[in-house]
Design a protein around this nucleic acid. Structure first.
Lengths: 193, 193
DNA sequence: TCAGGGGTAGACCGACTTGTCTACATTTAG
DNA sequence: CTAAATGTAGACAAGTCGGTCTACCCCTGA
């Protein structure tokens, strides 16, 4: 494996599971089996390495989510697939995303409060791309064809519920089955269409 | 003002706005105008100071939320008051809670991933107490009298939406007006009762 | 008057931080 | 075969971290 991707993979795993400020460069080097000089040949600073990790995670997460929603043709199917997928992730049943420790982007944003910081901006960008993915999926359903306002509203609602579900699971260390109830879900969607 | 509360107030403000690992003891001392010895007379370690901050924040936040929901007698009123209050907080219109920077407990939990850590446990406890507050409010409404299951479900739903709203506002640095729409809110609640 | 509690300022400790640099080894390309 | 690029190991710099400790000050109550 390429040294650069080797470093990013190791760093991403450590940053995600233990927090960014809590993980030092030396630790990553040791675990990745790479010399310090090599790391600083590929990245000018720790911040740049963090950015590379965020980009990789963004790509992986979006790819995974895209696949989970692939065969959904109604708003209900999208919502049901979304929350089922999140639930599986929370329960550590998704190997692509690794052991669950909340949303990497929310966690990271919490450590970089300044909104103009490149790292904070990548976190924001990730959320926008996920919202866009949900919007695209919903706007291609028969039920929402041409209903731009309703589509935006539902995408926003699903997004908010997604974030809430992830954060609750992260803080309480337990998964919330509420949003996997098809009856409730159908009613939620109906109320928003 | 008592030295101890002076330290806690300064520390809470700094920890909340800039993250815990990002704020050093010396900084707090300087800002609070207090000697290091004094701090370590009151707290055996930084961790204990963090715990004191979490407890103060928990008390303040719950007090504030309790007041916001005081005159609500229907599930709709509870939900509407909740999201209006959160929106005001996000828009920096709530002086009791200070400048908005997301949920202190979610932010802090992100920096202390180990679930058995005292700090992580306080974060979890806060979420449980807020959920309890919502449940109590809802269970005293005419519409939900005796409907334990429905009450739990709605409290959970509101809680998830609350967390989602806060996290989204924190990461995207913008407030989401979706949940302040009374029409949508009524339908959401109707769907859950 | 004087003892003691609580305060201040800040030196100091050892461990850790990011990042630079030297000295050497290995791989790759012409 | 040789020269350049890329790797390694790790010492080192300069600074920060949490936490301890000394030395001194000031207020209060007996």
């Amino acid at each position: 494996m390429d040294k650069r991707t080797q470093i990013i993979n190791t760093a991403l795993s450590a940053f995600y599971l233990r927090g960014i400020h809590a993980v030092g460069i030396n630790e990553i080097l040791k675990e990745a089996g790479v010399a310090k000089k090599t790391l600083y040949n590929h990245f000018v600073s720790k911040d740049e390495l963090i950015c590379a990790c965020l980009e990789l995670r963004d790509q992986r997460f979006n790819q995974w989510l895209y696949e989970q929603l692939e065969n959904c043709n109604t708003p209900f199917e999208v919502a049901y697939a979304l929350f089922s997928a999140l639930s599986a992730w929370i329960d550590n049943k998704v190997s692509e995303l690794g052991p669950f420790n909340g949303c990497f982007f929310i966690n990271t944003a919490a450590e970089f409060p300044h909104s103009e910081h490149p790292i904070a901006m990548l976190c924001k960008a990730h959320k926008e791309s996920v919202l866009q993915l949900l919007f695209d999926k919903l706007s291609h359903t028969e039920q929402l064809k041409g209903q731009l306002e309703k589509t935006i509203q539902l995408a926003q609602l699903l997004m908010t519920l997604k974030e809430g579900m992830i954060c609750q699971a992260r803080v309480t260390h337990s998964s919330n089955t509420l949003l996997q109830d098809p009856v409730l879900l159908r009613q939620l969607i109906a109320s928003s269409i």
